[in-house]
Design a protein around this nucleic acid. Structure first.
Ligand SMILES: [Mn+2]
Ligand SMILES: [Mn+2]
Ligand SMILES: [Zn+2]
Ligand SMILES: [Zn+2]
Lengths: 131, 131
DNA sequence: ATTTTGATTTAGAATAAGTATAAATCTATT
DNA sequence: AATAGATTTATACTTATTCTAAATCAAAAT
């Protein structure tokens, strides 16, 4: 049940996401595929991203922008977005279990996890700002 | 600069959001306007929601679903979504400042705030489930 | 009271991201 | 070589939202 069939196009899409340092959108992935000499159909890129997501090889991120981003890091982590330049960086500091427990208590939900998008200004934008 | 001009349509849209207990989407708002006997143009509802958001009378929520939801509670709080029924409830337990401080340290960002979507299963769905 | 002006609403076109469809192509397996 | 299943492709469609241009409204100035 967990066989993974990596076609040429799925492998190429995976390579793009794995090599990226910036959590690319589907459109980013398509552009980079072209840069590498590929030309896959529009839908194939979306299909591949979904396939890889379903197989847990990549993660789909909904950060509150219009387009989803993709991440080859599948371990549990969060993200921080720069309000000035839009850059997305990793947050590996884990959410306090104790906070989740208090949320469970407050809401009566059985808590499974949380998606957090931290907002702030990155170091580069801060130094540019005070020029 | 902070004058607020509440036209009939803006007031009616605001009333819907204020009276709602479920963080309605724009489509929900439109349906409820019709139920109350209004019939405003499609774009007017979106314009009004944006206007009210800009004036900080309501908040726009991006919870990772396709459509934005709207919230008349504008004080700082988070949300929890039931994975079973889709219900959205309030989370008022504040994220520890100390966690945000550690994120700032990890990333080098100046942290402004965080949007959190907790996921879980609500009490009703849990009791239904174990029938 | 009429005119002017700016703001708002309206209807509908346009856009962006993503999904669905059906035919064509690949890839195993017989 | 023939069949069957999976995948890709091109394109149509959907959904949520924004844009546009004309019509309407409301306040201020004549
Ligand atoms: Mn990441
Ligand atoms: Mn709320
Ligand atoms: Zn930045
Ligand atoms: Zn539920």
């Amino acid at each position: 049940m967990k066989t993974i069939n990596l076609t040429t196009q799925r492998q190429a899409v995976y390579d793009i996401v794995r090599d990226a340092v910036d959590h690319p959108t589907a459109a980013d992935v398509m552009n980079r595929l072209v840069e590498r000499g590929h030309s896959f159909a529009y839908g194939t890129v979306y299909n591949s991203l979904r396939y890889l997501t379903d197989k847990d090889m990549i993660r789909e991120l909904k950060l509150g922008e219009t387009a989803s981003r993709y991440d080859a890091r599948t371990d549990d982590h969060q993200h921080i977005v720069c309000e000035a330049c839009g850059k997305v960086d990793e947050v590996t500091t884990a959410i306090p279990e104790e906070w989740l427990a208090r949320v469970a208590e407050e809401t009566g939900y059985e808590v499974e996890g949380a998606h957090i998008v931290v907002e702030g200004v990155c170091a580069e934008c801060r130094s540019k700002r005070k020029k």
